Computed example of a mutant assay.
Amino acid sequence: MRAYNFCAGPAALPTAVLEKAQRELLNWQGTGVSIMEMSHRSKDYVAVAEKAEANLRQLLNIPKNYKVLFLQGGATLQFSAIPLNFFGKNAKADYIKTGIWSEKAIKEAKRYGEVNVVDAIAEIDGKMAILPAESWPLSTDASYVHYCENETIGGLQFKTIPQTTAPLVADLSSSILSAPIDVSQFGLIYAGAQKNIGPAGLTIVIVRDDLLDQAKPEIPSLLKYANQAANESMLNTPATYSWYLAGLVFEWLLEQGGVDAIYQQNLAKAKCLYDYIDQSDFYNNPIAPAHRSLMNVPFTLVNESLEALFLQQAEEHHLLNLAGHRSVGGMRASIYNAVPLEAVQALVEFMDKFAQAHR
């Protein structure tokens, strides 16, 4: 049997997608070769890549004046690529700090220009929350405003899109395709694939056309969005197998009814887990309800000495990868699109039995 995988990334993939990839592994659609052995410039592979982009555009309703890039290097490489692409005319940006991933982006951006850091974390009734955008001291001349829409490690998420004068840049690595979003409100969206898109090795960048001429002259050619757009994300050999698998995930999402339908499933999963934690005196979630992540649910045990036993017994029940990030500890259940409701229900059942046994 397949275990229930709550890993934050690389994360669970839909079983149907893995089974299809397995069937096609040695002989893709009668070609006699695996798609991972195929030239990225072949007619067959180009058709796969084009279909993946078309399906992603449909899923997110991406306007025509946005380029969709399938890149490498993870979302972390975009921490450098974004300022290098956008600091060419005015090397100044606002960065909203809400957790570890936004802090990493800030540190990298400071290498290339002036960064106005807006600390948007607050504590409300002992819980972590995000200060409203209206209170942020934003610059009047920023090239862009950057934020991490969902902090994977901390479990803190924006529930609305901040309204800014400068183009909005969003790290959607752990929330893309989990809920409807208006792409037209952003200058750029980027996301590592290994949570809701596919396997590690691929990064999606969605960038508005009018921002492609802002790059610093010293930018490496591979990092320049205009170059990648002009070459259909094939300036060099792309992550072909990851791109192919992402395409299968996009097809799977469309079969589920698209982003609107998967969002309803995600709401049900999150409600199931948060409701149980909230009624429990054995577990605790550190995030204010209005800012809780739909995808990443951190929680602690009242008795921290039981954490190792909790994780051990969880694995024995085929509930995997529930340890919190090494920087914060505790527990974390990542309930991405491919994690079914029955996995969350099994986790809640285990949590309840464990609590009853160790009061």
Rank of each mutant, 00 (worst) to 15 (best):
residue 246 A to L: 07
residue 220 P to M: 09
residue 191 A to H: 09
residue 265 Q to R: 12
residue 186 F to K: 03
residue 286 P to R: 06
residue 179 A to G: 02
residue 262 I to A: 07
residue 101 W to R: 12
residue 32 G to V: 02
residue 55 N to F: 08
residue 259 V to A: 09
residue 351 M to H: 05
residue 76 T to P: 04
residue 94 D to P: 12
residue 133 A to T: 11
residue 138 L to M: 10
residue 117 V to R: 01
residue 161 I to T: 15
residue 1 M to I: 10
residue 29 Q to E: 13
residue 289 P to Q: 04
residue 49 A to T: 10
residue 290 A to C: 10
residue 306 L to S: 08
residue 68 V to T: 15
residue 344 V to H: 08
residue 184 S to F: 02
residue 97 K to C: 07
residue 104 K to E: 14
residue 247 G to F: 01
residue 171 D to L: 06
residue 204 I to S: 03
residue 342 E to A: 08
residue 265 Q to V: 07
residue 323 A to C: 02
residue 61 N to W: 06
residue 283 Y to S: 00
residue 290 A to S: 15
residue 77 L to P: 09
residue 209 D to F: 06
residue 330 G to H: 09
residue 162 P to Q: 05
residue 335 I to V: 15
residue 195 K to Q: 12
residue 356 Q to T: 09
residue 128 M to S: 13
residue 14 P to V: 00
residue 285 N to L: 00
residue 115 V to M: 08
residue 283 Y to V: 03
residue 56 L to D: 01
residue 28 W to N: 11
residue 256 Q to W: 05
residue 134 E to N: 11
residue 243 W to N: 12
residue 42 S to Y: 11
residue 35 I to T: 03
residue 276 Y to I: 01
residue 100 I to A: 08
residue 185 Q to Y: 06
residue 298 P to G: 03
residue 87 F to A: 01
residue 145 V to W: 01
residue 335 I to H: 09
residue 324 G to L: 00
residue 49 A to C: 10
residue 131 L to P: 03
residue 327 S to E: 13
residue 45 Y to L: 02
residue 263 Y to C: 06
residue 250 F to A: 11
residue 359 R to A: 06
